[in-house]
């Protein structure tokens, strides 16, 4: 009477071939053993470091804002001004490049040049770019400003170009049909459609630039990163903890502020 099976196994979902599945599992296992083996941990050093680690945790829990306050303040102002100026300059340069990199608006040669600029800007890590700018322009926030502006171009121009490519074609067609020039087309058909997102992206990039400004300071491009680097070099973990908390706080404020502003603007 009961002719139905009493066992069932979930069929494999991704690698349906048994040999491939086993091979993959063995491969992953071998890699994992080798990779773990390549960690040349110096246990004595780590045990010695445990005490420092505890001091850092304490420094984070009981941050010291006062003893290095003037350094922290200086670094913070540098970082913030660097962030503000680089975001604005970056966006100002991104807009023409972004329009140039939109396939539906730009002629082929312009398109390839702009896409090339974007690709270069995105491929190079901020830190590496900062090293070069520091070598060229000397230590200090100016190199940081250039780095962040450069990185902003890749980010904003790419997303702007994608946005322009996604616009509602019928609106552009309707404006074209009135006999509008290229500039009028941009102004009447494209700008209203991409503006809200451009504002959102700009605010988001401000947030990223601030976070990055803390990093590029480590390689000499000024700002709060330089202060942090000094504090860690001097083993002043309580000041380092204070700086990290300030960074977290500002990122939080920027994030909430920008999401609020975006809602307000839409």
């Amino acid at each position: 009477m009961s002719s139905y099976p009493t066992t069932w196994k979930r069929p494999p979902q991704i690698f349906t071939h048994r040999g491939w599945r086993i091979g993959l599992q063995i491969g992953v296992l071998v890699w994992f053993v080798l990779a773990i083996g390549s960690i040349d941990a110096n246990w004595e050093r780590i045990i010695a470091g445990a005490e420092r680690g505890m001091r850092f945790v304490q420094g984070f829990l009981q941050p010291n804002f006062t003893s290095r306050w003037s350094d922290i303040y200086g670094g913070l102002i540098e970082s913030l001004t660097m962030t503000f100026t680089s975001t604005i300059v970056g966006i100002a340069i991104s807009i023409p490049i972004g329009i140039g990199a939109a396939r539906n608006l730009a002629p082929a040669p312009v398109y390839y040049v702009c896409r090339g600029i974007i690709a270069v800007s995105r491929a190079l890590q901020e830190v590496i770019v900062a090293i070069f700018f520091v070598a060229m322009f000397g230590f200090g926030p100016f190199a940081g400003f250039l780095t962040l502006s450069f990185a902003t171009i890749g980010f904003i121009a790419k997303l702007l170009a994608e946005d322009i490519e996604d616009i509602d074609e019928s609106q552009a067609e309707a404006i074209r049909a009135t006999g509008a020039s290229w500039w009028q087309l941009i102004n009447y058909a494209v700008q209203p459609q991409v503006m809200p997102r451009l504002i959102g992206l700009s605010l988001y990039r401000f947030d990223i630039n601030f976070r990055e400004s803390a990093v590029i300071g480590i390689v000499g491009a000024g700002g709060i990163g330089a202060t942090l680097n000094t504090a860690i070099d001097r083993y002043e973990y309580d000041s380092a903890g204070a700086i990290l908390l300030i960074i977290i706080g500002i990122v939080l404020v920027a994030e909430y502020g920008s999401s609020y502003l975006r809602k307000f603007l839409q």
Binding site: I39, A41, R45, I46, G49, R52, V215, L228, N229, I232
Partner: peptide
């Protein structure tokens, strides 16, 4: 930044 901290604590590597 995490690396900077951790290198100071755990040593390079």
């Amino acid at each position: 930044i995490w690396a900077l901290l951790l290198v100071a604590i755990l040593g390079p590597g």
